[in-house]
Each structure stands twice: as structure tokens, then as C-alpha cells.
């Protein structure tokens, strides 16, 4: 498994390197000042592919992975539920409605962090890879052209509102991330539930990384506008170090949930399509309370058999009946005095 994961990591890294080389028109558009960032993204690609392969090799994830993609490519999905997947992607991945059911404040903070990070990634990754370029025919502007893979996409005036937004997109992202991450840091200091069992490297480090990246990024803008570039080089190095560290940390820490979360969509799609096909929900053999869709319970039983958990038949009983049946067995066979 480790070898397969290493192969997957290497293949993805090589593909990214090729995408960088060809996407930057044989490195003509590649900005060598951004080389450390580009190298970090190659390590990131290796780490994510490696960890992902290891993750989906475990019985539970492997079966869900197959069922999720099987549902996606199924006729039932395309014919009977074409809108289900886009809705699920918007609900689970975009607006993360489920977080609102946990806490409205956490939902709001997570939305700030999520959209901030997404905006920052959408700007910086292509820039780092030399896919985006901003050039001015007059040398110093204000007329600029944005090109993707060498093709002109848009022309704009750097002094216009659009120009300001284009050049301050990362500042906007930083403000969003600082607001969201600060709330989460405060919560990690104050909320007794969050404090229980929290670990520095897993729970606090990601937040600290996000705040350091965002603050140093904003300071770069501050330096160029108000300090005439004073301290810019030091800040640039500090910013680069924090970004590179975070990118390499992504596959091994809490940030890996970004890669895992789409599994929620696969799981929901599997349940949704199987329910539509089957219409019937499997009921507890004892009390007839619904458990879940029959294909889902069969999939779980398969996972349990894969893991040599010899009580997969138990999955056909609801949790309460399992407890009551165990209580009855104790009553009948262990301690009559229980009465």
C-alpha cells in the first residue's frame, strides 16, 4: 500500500511539474521569485496524493469511495437525479449548511476562512505556477492585461475599482481569514468543549499558520503603501516561510479534511440514489424502526466482514434494540437477581 501511495504521489507531482512547465509557456511566464512556493506545491501534491491513496485503501473508505463514484456514474443519478449532485456540492462543500446545525457562530467563522482561503488559492496557485500574468504595454500602467496560459482574458485600468480588486484580492482574502481564524483561536482558548482533548499540532497549529500567513501578507501591502517598501524583504521571507510550511503541513494535519470532505457528498449521493432505486428503507428486525437504506446497510456489513468483525448481522438491528437484547441476555443468562 505504501508503495502504491508513493507511486501515486510521484505521478501526481510529475504531472504538476509538467503542468507548470507547459502552463507557463516553457517557463517564459514563470516568476523565479516564486520558486519556493511552486516547489512547496509540488510537495503538497505528493503529500496529498500519498495520504489520499493510503486513506482510500482502508476498508471503510475504499467501499464508500467505490459506492460514491458508482452512484455518480450511475444511470439513476444522471436520469432521475441530475440536480442532486450540484445541490449537495453547494450545500456540503460551498455553504456547509451542516456547520450551521452545530453552531451559527462556527458556521459564520468557517465561511470566512473557507471563502478567504479559496480566494487566496485561486489567485496564488496559478500565479505561482506561471499560469497567470499581469502585464502592461506601457511598462508602469495604468493599463494592464491579465493573461492565462498566454491568452489575454481581460484588460483593465489599475486605478479603477476592478484594478483595485484585482491587485488587492489577497488583502481581502487575508481580512476574511483573520476574522474567521481569530474566532476559532478565541474559541480554542475559551470553550471548554473545544479545549477537551485538543492538541497543539492538530488543533492550534493550523489556525496559527492561517493568521501568520494573513498578517504577514497584509504587512507586505502595508509596507509597500505606507513604508515605501521598508522591511519588505524581511516580511516577504517571513510570509514565504509560513506559506511553504503550511502547504507542506496540509496533507498531514487538520487541513486534510479539505481533501476528505467531498466524501460526504459521495456518501449522501450513494444514500440518495440507492433510496430512490430501492424506495424501501431497511427497518430494524426487532422494532421495525428505520435504520438506513438497504444498500447502505449491506455496504456496512461488507466493511465489517472485510475487517473480520464477525457480528455484521448486528447491523440489521437498531442501536436501542442491541442494548435491550444485551440487557435481556444479561437478565436471562448472567444475573437473575438483576430483576
Amino acid at each position: 500500500m505504501r508503495r502504491r501511495a508513493a507511486v501515486a504521489g510521484t505521478v501526481v507531482s510529475v504531472l504538476l511539474i509538467l503542468a507548470i512547465v507547459f502552463g507557463s509557456r516553457l517557463l517564459r511566464d514563470f516568476d523565479s521569485a516564486l520558486l519556493p512556493y511552486a516547489v512547496a506545491t509540488v510537495f503538497l501534491a505528493f503529500g496529498v496524493a500519498y495520504r489520499y491513496t493510503v486513506w482510500v485503501s482502508a476498508p471503510g473508505a475504499r467501499r464508500l469511495f467505490r459506492k460514491g463514484w458508482g452512484s455518480f456514474f450511475s444511470v439513476a443519478n444522471f436520469r432521475r437525479a441530475p440536480t442532486a449532485l450540484p445541490k449537495m456540492i453547494a450545500t456540503y462543500l460551498g455553504f456547509q449548511k451542516f456547520l450551521g446545525a452545530r453552531s451559527h457562530a462556527r458556521w459564520a467563522a468557517h465561511q470566512l476562512v473557507f471563502w478567504g482561503c479559496l480566494l487566496a488559492a485561486a489567485i496564488t496557485f496559478p500565479l505561482t505556477w506561471g499560469w497567470f500574468t499581469f502585464t502592461s504595454s506601457t511598462g508602469s500602467g495604468p493599463g494592464y492585461e491579465m493573461r492565462i496560459w498566454g491568452f489575454k482574458v481581460i484588460g483593465f485600468d489599475a486605478l479603477s475599482v476592478l484594478g483595485w480588486l484585482m491587485f488587492h484580492g489577497l488583502d481581502i482574502a487575508a481580512v476574511l481569514v483573520i476574522a474567521g481564524a481569530s474566532y476559532f483561536l478565541w474559541r480554542r482558548m475559551k470553550d471548554r468543549g473545544a479545549i477537551t482533548g485538543q492538541r497543539f499540532a492538530y488543533d492550534l497549529m493550523p489556525l496559527i499558520c492561517l493568521v501568520v500567513i494573513s498578517v504577514t501578507g497584509l504587512l507586505l501591502t502595508f509596507s509597500s503603501i505606507f513604508l515605501h517598501g521598508g522591511g519588505y524583504e524581511f516580511l516577504a521571507v517571513l510570509h514565504m516561510v509560513s506559506v511553504v510550511f503550511t502547504l507542506i503541513y496540509i496533507p498531514f494535519g487538520k487541513f486534510f479534511h479539505i481533501v476528505q470532505r467531498p466524501a460526504a457528498v459521495g456518501m449522501q449521493l450513494f444514500k440518495y440514489t440507492s433510496r430512490r432505486e430501492d424506495e424501501s428503507v431497511l427497518a430494524c428486525r426487532r422494532c421495525q424502526e428505520p435504520i438506513d437504506t438497504a444498500p447502505y446497510v449491506e455496504n456496512l456489513q461488507g466493511t465489517m466482514r472485510d475487517l473480520d468483525l464477525g457480528f455484521d448481522e448486528w447491523a440489521r438491528y437498531c442501536p436501542r434494540c442491541k442494548r435491550v437484547l444485551r440487557g435481556n441476555a444479561y437478565l436471562d443468562h448472567v444475573k437473575k437477581g438483576f430483576k
Partner: peptide, 28 residues
């Protein structure tokens, strides 16, 4: 782990003692 749980209920239905609970709205 609140960051990772996808609310699939595998744990709820596999536990031999019938212990875990699930909040389907919160996917947790």
C-alpha cells in the same frame, strides 16, 4: 473529530453495544 466526521452513521450501526448517537442535521 468534528472536522472529519461526514455523518455516515457507520459507527452507529456497527457498534455492538449500540452506543454512538448521530445528529443527521449537523452530520456529526
Amino acid at each position: 473529530d468534528t472536522t472529519r466526521c461526514i455523518g455516515c452513521a457507520n459507527c452507529v450501526n456497527a457498534c455492538p453495544f449500540g452506543v454512538p448517537k448521530i445528529d443527521l442535521q449537523a452530520k456529526l
